[in-house]
Design a protein around this nucleic acid. Structure first.
Lengths: 160, 160
DNA sequence: GGTCTATACTTGAGTACTCAATCAATATAG
DNA sequence: CTATATTGATTGAGTACTCAAGTATAGACC
């Protein structure tokens, strides 16, 4: 039992508290940066883009509402409203399901496809520069791996 | 040049993309967990609590609006509205500044002090259990350190 | 077949923010 | 001392969500 463990427990300054605070800050900083530099010019939010991205990777570029609920970590109503906006922008279209009349697919339009490719490139580039400013590629991988071990986090990711 | 680097660059599946996605997910999961289990029962949001926490650590338990803007990563208007709520709840009070008539201090009331102590304990406990489920204490420290190196993240933290 | 629960999704109301504009008090410059 | 910029804070309007409630379809049991 190291003195470090002792001191963090006695003072109440748990490492978990600092880690959480930094995670919150990192989230806000990265989100704002991407929003301002990459997404806002195209009139998209982060979740708009993430939805398009997931659709672009999905079979036949279509996904059910519930799938997006899980992938984007939104409530069903949140997804409904998100897709309302993307439909109005012509990036996504509705598609009835023959097997189950309850579900309506959200499918990427050609416009949506083009958008996700174009925006995705600068999104990734900006992200690489933000992370790369401070961390090596191995460190980014390690960060990703640690985050992925947190309960529920690994589930929705695509790789790594 | 390893094949790993090659493949990530060619496919566009950059590690940074995965790291970002996981950071987003981790943020949402932790935030919801704490909101539901710890804060909601007391009618507080995460930022409410963080504001109280920062005030409790500040000199004479008081802080200017602009200080909270920096610490909580909110806009000035966001802080105004946040403090409106905390004042109504009787956890914070306004205090005019003699040196500079533009600033109004936000100061913790005794009620606010009690709240931050009580909520802070279960907040920390829940956080330790969430992180502890998946990560060793060293790994949490490492995670925190990596996050702290991201541009702008380290600035507002309180420790190590 | 008829009931009963579960699933997919939408709607209305409310909230926690944001941005843009504004105001007042303070510092700076001539 | 006056004009101008800067800083601290608030307000109105809009947004991206949430929760609670509701509708419609699907599947399960008897």
């Amino acid at each position: 039992m190291s003195s470090q463990v002792l001191s963090t427990q006695v003072t109440g300054e748990a490492v978990e508290l600092a880690a959480f605070a930094r995670l919150m800050r990192a989230h806000t900083i990265l989100r704002r940066e991407l929003q301002a530099e990459v997404l806002s010019p195209r009139g998209l939010t982060i979740n708009d883009f993430e939805a398009l991205l997931h659709l672009s990777k999905a079979f036949e570029n279509r996904l059910r509402r519930v799938d997006l609920v899980e992938l984007l970590m939104l409530t069903p109503s949140g997804v409904t409203r998100l897709l309302d906006g993307l439909q109005e922008a012509g990036l996504v279209e509705n598609l009835q399901c023959n097997d189950d009349a309850r579900v309506t697919w959200a499918r990427l339009t050609p416009d949506g496809m083009e958008t996700v490719e174009c925006v995705g490139a600068s999104h990734t580039k900006r992200l690489q520069s933000l992370f790369g400013e401070a961390l090596s590629q191995d460190e980014v991988s390690h960060l990703s791996e640690l985050l992925g071990r947190l309960p529920g986090v690994g589930a929705g990711s695509c790789s790594g």
